[in-house]
Design a protein around this nucleic acid. Structure first.
Length: 810
DNA sequence: AGCACGCCGACT
DNA sequence: GTCGGCGTGCTC
């Protein structure tokens, strides 16, 4: 069809379709998967050569004269001689872009580490001597061309504005240059090759230079704490970083960026139980036959799912292929990471949450070259460029973190299935609390095959769960409601027995608001229709949606009333109550305020594991965390805070959270106990969770979803319109709804516009239009029509946001 | 999304 | 009289 000397290019702009470019004379035609630099309007963009346009392009309008062919512009440069992305990743990204009606070029940008892209090193030069003004700019450039960053130092924060004007006036010109990203050193990690004894001897030996002794002592202090970075260890030992290079030369340590190359794997340790055997067998058959099929492995915590995954991954590697293991999140020091390293050795690449860009690039290259045959990682691992992929595993399939919450929004769990389909390989998802969607698809939906692991392999007993009815508690104790009597007593007993307690509380359910006693209004964020929460330590009000902070006002901003009251339980207040009751207990808090970096997270768990903390109070983080043997009590304050949310998945989330948290108790040799505080103890999510009964929960929930027409029975799409003026937002939403109604026709239903549950965010009013249909294709087509309409083109990417399969209706 | 063009109000 | 607000349109 097209000329030999043209290519299709996907560019990272919020526009559907691809763009055609000319390949200039003398330039070799780049293959699909190669990056190219292209002129785009007044800009220069990095795009990908793709083989064909996606099917989202508009069919030529009937009757109307066909649009004249656009004037083609030439490519500026080709960045790759070999395709950066292999065909299957290209195909996967094309699927994603079609599935969610998102521009291909934006998805491609998520598919590889940005550290691989060249970085602009443009410099500014004096182009003309004549002219008036811009004295500072002239002076700064008098002695030669300078980079933007240098000029910012000289000219201050206004540098960009000044330069822009000078550029327009023709006084200065820009010298385009591109270079590789530079990476900082010091991020290498240290693995100990010597034993403790040898290290100790050498560290004490007076013949060892002092700075090396200090370095060795610092390493001894780390013990088994994973692999410290050179920078970290050096600052701790107060020695220069090269000390560790010397130690490496002595053979005491190995420095590596990710996985020590010398690490050998170990074969599977023990025999599988019959249940595991059956699961492995079923998937293995499909794997060897090179077929695509989706499996859902349903098994309670401790039933041995991980072992099933590892056996199958070994099998994929055994036939010369590679495997992808997706997890919600992973830290390098986690139990799972250690287990995988031990089993697979240097064949594994772990894309963990605390990676530097340099490590990311390196692991990506290791995977693409086939040096790493197994990639384990979170959402972004979906695009790992593994050659001859034979198996995809999605662990904790129900976990919300598989969803990318900022645009381009997609579910990495769902797209993992697409990756399996593209590669014609099995996809194995696993969970102890499957999502209602997946369980439906694995049963009456008929899309997946259900595998079940019934027993808890280790034999540990499932802890009994007690539910405290907080309404009665409130009545009987006259309003004293943070900590129920039953939970307080249990904490006391646990402390006395020398065991540990985990308390789960939620920020949303336990926030402190500042309330005016005159008009009854809570102090709200100026930009969002959300009450600000009071952080007592810092004595400021914070908006948890946009991050705005302001001091506690002296008077009510709405009515001027001077009597302000602090209401709510407060995150920090939970701790105060516990401190008051148990003054000798050692307490630690784990939430977003305390955990800024991955190392904070590791540090707190380490202390908890070491028994240095008696009571750990925290958010979801503690529910998902490690298993700590000393924990015998788990308390959940307000288990059902989610149930108040206007979202069809809130029951599911409640069930998952409670079940997960309950699973933290009694993982050691001592029996555990779980206490749930609830205002709705009769709700099926709370009730079923207290009995560890997923099936009971599922039956109720699927019945409700069928009744109301929610996923998985019907597909949903959510279209959001935003504008600072509420009437404008409403008008835009009406127009969008009209276009959607016409496009969807009788294939489904369009509701709205309605106000979003949080009607104003970051200064903009939000209106929602919701589409539902038994056929997701119909929704896609309707959303596509909206985006291609002149209305859609005007607003897409700015104040219009369309989401197929939304994660929540908020 | 960026970027430019074009058309109306309130300032030097 | 200009500066600058944002509505509209375009990007191979």
């Amino acid at each position: 069809m097209a000329d030999e000397r043209t290519v299709q290019v996907a560019v990272p702009v919020p526009l559907a379709g691809t763009f055609t470019y000319l390949v200039p004379e003398g330039m070799e035609v780049p293959c699909p998967g190669c990056r190219v630099r292209v002129p785009f309007g007044k800009r220069h963009l990095l795009g990908f050569v793709v083989d064909a346009a996606p099917e989202t392009q508009e069919p030529p309008p009937e009757g109307a004269s066909p649009a004249p062919p656009p004037k083609l512009r030439p490519l500026e440069a080709v960045l790759d001689t070999e395709p950066l992305l292999p065909p299957d990743i290209l195909e996967l990204t094309r699927w994603i872009s079609e599935y969610y009606q998102l521009p291909w070029g934006l998805i491609l940008r998520c598919a590889y580490p940005s550290g691989l892209d060249p970085v602009s090193r443009a410099r500014f030069v004096l182009a003309a001597q004549a002219g008036e003004g811009f004295e500072k700019v002239r002076a700064a450039l008098a002695d030669g061309p300078k980079a933007l960053s240098t000029l910012k130092e000289i000219l201050g924060p206004d540098a960009e504005t000044h330069l822009h004007k000078a550029l327009k006036a023709g006084l200065v010109a820009q010298e385009e240059r591109w270079g590789a990203v530079r990476h900082r050193a010091g991020h290498d990690r240290i693995a100990l090759l010597w034993g403790q004894e040898e290290l100790g001897t050498k560290a004490a030996d007076a013949g060892t230079p002092l700075f090396l002794r200090k370095a060795l002592q610092a390493l001894l202090a780390y013990q088994e704490r994973g692999y410290p970075t050179v920078a970290d260890a050096a600052s701790r030992a107060k020695v220069p970083q090269h000390a560790f290079q010397e130690l490496a030369q002595m053979g005491a340590v190995e420095l590596f960026e990710m996985v020590p190359a010398g690490l050998a794997g170990e074969p599977s340790p023990h025999a599988l139980n019959p249940g595991q055997e059956a699961c492995v067998g079923a998937v293995s058959e499909v794997l060897l036959a090179r077929r695509h099929e989706v499996f859902l492995l349903f098994g309670v915590t401790g039933s041995g799912k991980t072992e099933v995954f590892m056996r199958l991954m070994e099998e994929a590697l055994g036939v010369g292929g590679t495997a992808l293991y997706m997890v919600p999140e992973i830290s390098l020091t986690s139990f799972l990471a250690r287990r995988l390293l031990q089993r697979f050795g240097a064949k594994v690449a772990i894309l963990h949450s605390a990676m530097t860009e340099r490590e990311r690039v390196r692991q990506w290259i290791r995977a693409s070259r086939g040096d790493a045959r197994l990639v384990i990682g979170p959402r972004s691992a979906l695009f790992a460029p593994l050659p001859d992929l034979r198996l995809v595993v999605v662990d904790e399939e129900h976990d919300g973190s598989y969803r990318q919450n900022e645009p381009p929004r997609f579910s990495a769990r769902d797209m993992a299935i697409i990756r399996g389909r593209v590669g014609n390989i099995p996809v194995l998802m696993g969970s102890a609390t499957p999502s209602v969607e997946s369980y439906y698809n694995a049963t009456e939906g008929g899309k997946y095959r259900l595998l079940t692991l019934p027993e808890r392999a280790g034999g540990a007993a499932i802890p009994p769960v007690e539910v405290v009815d907080m309404r009665r508690e409130f009545e009987e104790t006259a309003g004293r409601s943070t900590l129920s009597r039953a939970l307080e007593e249990a904490v006391g007993q646990t402390l006395e027995a020398g065991r540990q307690t985990v308390i789960l509380r939620n920020r949303l359910g336990f926030a402190t608001f500042v309330l005016c006693r005159k008009c009854g209004r809570a102090v709200q964020c100026d930009d969002c229709s959300v009450s600000m929460t009071h952080h007592r330590r810092a004595n400021v009000l914070k908006c948890h949606y946009c991050g705005r902070q302001k001091p506690v006002p002296a008077a009510c901003p709405s009515c001027g009333g001077e009597f302000l009251q602090f209401l709510g339980e407060g995150t920090e207040r939970v701790e105060d109550v516990l401190c008051e009751k148990f003054p000798t207990a050692r307490m630690e808090r784990m939430d977003r305020d305390r955990v800024k970096r991955a190392s904070d997270y590791d540090r707190i768990w380490k202390a908890f594991e070491a028994g240095e903390v008696d009571i750990l109070v925290g958010t979801q983080m503690v529910a998902k965390g490690h298993d700590v043997a000393g924990v015998t009590l788990v308390g959940i304050l307000s288990a059902d805070f989610l149930l108040g949310m206007p979202d069809f998945r809130s029951a599911e989330r409640t069930f998952q959270l409670v079940t997960q948290a309950a699973g933290r108790a009694g993982r050691g040799e001592h029996a555990g106990r779980v206490i749930i505080q609830s205002f709705h103890p009769e709700h099926h999510a709370v009730e079923a969770a207290s009995r560890h009964d997923f099936l009971a929960f599922y039956e109720k929930d699927i019945r409700y979803r069928k009744l109301v027409g929610y996923p998985p029975v019907q597909a949903l799409a959510k279209v959001e319109l935003r504008h600072p003026d509420t009437a404008k937002a409403e008008a835009m939403a009406r127009e969008a709804a009209g276009i959607l109604r016409e496009a969807l026709g009788r294939a489904g239903r369009v509701t709205g516009p309605v106000d979003a549950p949080i009607p104003r965010l970051e200064g903009k009013y939000r209106k929602l239009v919701v589409l539902r249909s038994p056929a997701r294709n119909a929704l896609r087509a309707a959303v596509g029509a909206l985006l291609r309409s002149s209305f859609g083109k005007r607003h897409a990417g700015k104040d219009l946001d369309a989401e197929i399969d939304p994660g929540s209706m908020m």
